[in-house]
């Protein structure tokens, strides 16, 4: 049964960040503007602001990740929060403790915020509905469903280089089926008014009725990249590179790997993005990844500012 958007307060402020779907346009813009103020913090001698002083932020990673966990940790520390990293995969869950029991125990340690990554779609929603008022939940990736801070940092990056979303064409390429990054990106782009969002990949990696999310589907990457301003490449998990979804990484690269020839179909000033970690020679040619159109490293830098913005906003700052 549909109830009120669980990530917003009654007066439409950010309470949790669970997905980019259903976030009002104004709120996304506010997150991006808040991130603007935090970008420069990283360049200072003392890389800290005191907004979250005394707050306890729990990094709850039920699925392994070094990169995302680290960027959240850095973001929280730059806001002066106390950060506790928990790699649950190796502790409670393996002892049979239920997800909500783990949450209750940590909440009893006076947690103020949970950053959650979990292999099940909807895990963050479940936690957000369970925790008591005053504890914020930020989804750091749930199954195939959402990775909203990645979606938002992608928006920040696009806005940084392209200024506006109103005349943009954006292509998202690769394993759309299993990608939470793609889903979060699509919702954010359509909300911000991007008129042309394309997904490109073989039919085995395009989810059913994805057009209903407001995108067009292309199987031919050459045609799909025609005239685009932004190319977002997705990571292909190694276990999916050969099997019923794809014959081989080699053939995937041939059809859907980004190389100079395919990129030439995009606008000359098109930017190339990737959420990382990259598989060079599978999704993307090294020359492109390191080339002048690549904004993959700035994405990482902006990611910290965007995560700081979200953490500040869910704690009422």
């Amino acid at each position: 049964m549909l109830t009120a958007n669980p990530q917003l307060t009654a007066d439409k402020k950010l309470k949790h960040l669970l997905t980019t779907e259903g976030l009002p346009k104004k709120l996304i813009e506010q997150i991006l503007e808040t991130a603007d103020q935090f970008v420069s913090v990283g360049d200072r001698e003392v890389k800290k602001v005191p907004l979250l002083r005394g707050k306890s932020v729990f990094n709850l990673f039920f699925e392994n990740s070094t990169r995302t966990r680290t960027t959240f940790e850095i973001a929280a520390k730059r806001l002066s929060a106390d950060v506790i990293n928990l790699n649950i995969g190796a502790s409670s869950a393996s002892k049979g403790e239920s997800l909500l029991d783990t949450i209750d125990n940590l909440a009893a340690m006076n947690a103020d915020m949970f950053i959650v990554r979990h292999s099940q779609s909807g895990a963050s929603h479940l936690i957000a509905q369970h925790v008591k008022a005053g504890i914020a939940v930020i989804n750091a990736g749930d199954g195939r469903h959402a990775h909203p801070t990645q979606g938002l940092l992608d928006m920040y990056t696009i806005r940084h280089y392209k200024k506006s979303f109103h005349n943009l064409s954006v292509a998202i390429v690769g394993d759309i089926l299993h990608s939470r990054v793609a889903r979060s990106g699509i919702h954010a782009l359509t909300t911000l008014g991007c008129p042309d969002v394309r997904v490109i990949g073989p039919a085995t990696l395009i989810p059913s009725e994805v057009e209903r999310m407001g995108v067009s589907v292309h199987h031919d990457m050459h045609r799909g990249l025609e005239g685009v301003d932004v190319v977002i490449m997705l990571r292909l998990q190694s276990e999916r590179m050969s099997g019923p979804l794809l014959p081989s990484a080699h053939e995937f690269f041939k059809n859907y790997g980004l190389n100079a020839e395919k990129l030439a179909r995009a606008k000359p000033d098109a930017i190339v993005m990737h959420p990382g970690p990259m598989n060079r020679g599978v999704e993307i040619e090294s020359g492109i990844a390191d080339g002048c159109q690549s904004v993959i490293l700035p994405q990482v830098t902006f990611g910290i500012a965007v995560r700081m913005a979200v953490m500040a906003m869910v704690t009422g700052n």
């Binding site: 779609s121 749930d142 469903h145 889903r183 209903r212």
Partner: peptide, 15 residues
């Protein structure tokens, strides 16, 4: 069910 909702929620579909 494999369709719009499973795609949106990122739930594996049963066609």
């Amino acid at each position: 069910h494999d369709g719009e909702v499973s795609t949106r929620l990122g739930l594996a579909g049963i066609p």
